[in-house]
Simulated assay, not measured.
Amino acid sequence: MAADLPHASAPFIIFSDFDGTITTRDSNDTATDELGFGVARRRELNVEILNGQKSFRDAFAEMLASVYDAGHKFDAVKDYLVKHITLDTGFKACFDWCKTNNVPLVIVSSGMKPIIEAILANLIGADDAAKIDIIANDVDIAADGSWKIVYRHPESHFGHDKSRATAPYRDLAHKPTLFFCGDGVSDLSAAKASDLLFVKVIEGHTNDLAVHCDREKIPYVAFSNFEQVRDVVARVVDGKATIEQELAAGKQ
Rank of each mutant, 00 (worst) to 15 (best):
C181W: 04
A121Q: 05
A222C: 10
G145M: 05
A210T: 13
A190W: 06
P176K: 04
N101W: 03
A143M: 11
T177R: 11
A118R: 01
V221C: 15
N207G: 13
S163I: 03
A210E: 14
A118W: 06
A167M: 07
D140I: 07
P168G: 04
I135D: 15
F158N: 09
M112K: 10
D183A: 03
V108M: 11
H174V: 09
D183Y: 04
A190R: 02
K217C: 12
I149Y: 09
K192A: 10
Y169R: 05
I149H: 08
E155S: 13
K99Q: 15
V139P: 09
M112H: 07
N225V: 00
H160A: 09
G125N: 06
A136V: 01
P168Y: 06
D127H: 13
N137E: 04
R152H: 09
P104G: 02
P104W: 00
K217Q: 15
F226I: 04
E155P: 10
A136K: 06
K200N: 05
A129L: 00
K99M: 13
G145K: 09
I107T: 07
F223I: 08
P104C: 00
I119Q: 00
I119C: 02
I115A: 04
M112G: 03
A173D: 12
K175V: 04
I115M: 14
Y220R: 06
A118P: 11
P168L: 04
L172H: 06
D183H: 06
E216T: 15
